[in-house]
Amino acid sequence: MSESQNLKVYRAAEVREQSENGKTWLIIYNKVYDVTEFKYEHPGGEHILNQYSGDDASSIFVYINHSEFALNLMNKYLIGVLHEDDRDNRGEK
């Protein structure tokens, strides 16, 4: 059983709704992350996380070329996976 099978499944509308309600949820490669608490510690500043809150941040995440430490830290904020019908199938990491 894969890690994603143990996670809650979210619709894209739910992720956007959380953003509208003051949370900072991001979609990165069809996984959902709640970085609400982390955004104040984010080395690149909270503004970039706020900018993509409620949306797919995969492209900018790849563009920034995050460190191995950052990639491992993401697991702490992983809360679910995006519903199959809402997925962008450009590939998963």
Rank of each mutant, 00 (worst) to 15 (best):
D56A: 07
Y33S: 10
L71G: 01
P43D: 10
S59L: 10
N72V: 13
E3N: 06
A13N: 05
F38Y: 14
D86N: 08
L71E: 15
L82G: 02
G22W: 08
E68W: 08
A57F: 04
G22I: 11
K23W: 12
L26T: 06
Y40T: 13
V15H: 05
P43C: 14
K93A: 07
P43R: 09
S53N: 00
M74H: 02
N65R: 10
Y63I: 03
N6P: 06
N89H: 06
E3P: 02
M1Y: 03
N72W: 05
S4E: 11
L7T: 01
L49A: 07
E20W: 12
S59Y: 04
W25F: 05
K31A: 11
I60P: 08
S4L: 12
G54A: 01
A57N: 03
Y40I: 04
I48L: 15
E3Y: 05
D86G: 10
E3F: 03
L49D: 02
Y63A: 02
S53L: 03
N21S: 15
A13M: 15
I60G: 04
G80Q: 00
Y10L: 08
G91Y: 10
N30R: 10
L49R: 11
L73F: 04
Y77C: 03
S58A: 07
N6L: 10
A12T: 06
A57E: 03
H47P: 07
L78P: 02
A13H: 13
F69N: 03
Y40V: 11
T36P: 12
N50S: 15
Y29W: 14
E3A: 03
I48D: 06
T24D: 13
K31F: 01
N72D: 09
Q51R: 14
E17R: 15
D88L: 05
S19N: 09
F61Y: 12
Y52F: 14
L26W: 02
E68N: 04
P43I: 00
L82W: 15
H66P: 02
R87Y: 04
D86V: 02
L71Q: 12
L82T: 11
R11Y: 15
E3M: 03
V15A: 05
F61L: 00
R11D: 05
R87C: 05
M1W: 04
N30D: 11
N72S: 14
E92R: 03
A12K: 13
L73E: 05
I79G: 01
S4N: 09
E92Y: 03
R90I: 09
E92P: 01
F69P: 05
V81M: 02
I27F: 05
E20Y: 13
K76I: 05
V35Q: 09
K8C: 07
N21A: 13
L78H: 07
A70C: 10
R87K: 02
N65Y: 02
S67T: 15
G45Y: 04
M1V: 09
D86L: 07
G91H: 05
V35T: 08
I48K: 01
A13F: 12
G22Q: 03
Y52E: 00
N65F: 00
T24F: 06
